[in-house]
Amino acid sequence: MALYESPEPEDGVRRVLVDRLWPRGVSKEDAHVDEWPKGLTPSDELRRWFHGGGSYAEFTRRYEAELAAPEAAELLDGLRKSVHKGRVTLLTASKTPDESHATVLARLLAG
């Protein structure tokens, strides 16, 4: 879900920002973010590589490798526990959310 959209009752138990950087033009109050686990976001290096023209398939592979690191894996586990309690909405400011890290996270949480 785009961070710029208004919160909806269907958002569920938690609204989680999954971007490393806070999106421009949105106040923290207006965003209604419950959690911002920066350790689950792609590293600055990976993010720059991808936005510099890297392929989505390779980005996905590298990002999944980053998520396998102990700190990220622990955060991912915690987010999975939230998902088991009810719907969690992943928020991103990405202009192409279907080909973003949010889609990778959603797939890992669903699987």
Rank of each mutant, 00 (worst) to 15 (best):
G54A: 01
K38R: 15
R107M: 05
G111N: 06
L3S: 01
T96D: 07
L17A: 04
L40E: 11
G52I: 02
R20K: 14
V104H: 11
K81R: 14
L109Y: 03
L91N: 06
R24A: 00
R61C: 09
S94G: 04
R47V: 08
P7W: 00
E35S: 12
S43E: 09
G53V: 00
R61W: 09
G86H: 11
G25Q: 01
R15W: 06
H32G: 12
L90K: 07
K95V: 09
L75V: 08
E71W: 07
V16R: 08
S27H: 04
P23A: 01
W36M: 06
E8L: 14
S100Y: 01
A69M: 12
D77G: 15
R14C: 14
K81S: 13
D98H: 06
L46K: 06
R62H: 07
P9W: 08
W49V: 00
T60I: 07
A69S: 13
A2V: 08
W36A: 06
P70L: 03
G111Q: 04
P37C: 05
P23K: 01
P7R: 03
R87A: 11
H51D: 01
L67H: 08
V26Y: 07
K85Y: 11
G86C: 11
Y56W: 14
A31P: 05
R20I: 10
A110N: 13
A31G: 05
V83W: 06
D34G: 13
Y4N: 07
S82E: 15
Y4H: 10
Y63E: 02
D44I: 07
A57C: 10
P23L: 00
V104G: 12
R15D: 05
S43F: 12
E64H: 02
H32K: 15
R107I: 03
G53W: 00
A72L: 11
D77H: 14
A68L: 05
E74P: 11
E8Q: 15
W22G: 00
L79C: 10
V13I: 14
V16L: 08
P97Y: 00
S94R: 02
V83G: 06
S43Y: 10
D98Y: 01
S82W: 15
W22P: 01
D77S: 15
V26L: 14
L67G: 06
S82P: 11
R80I: 08
T96E: 09
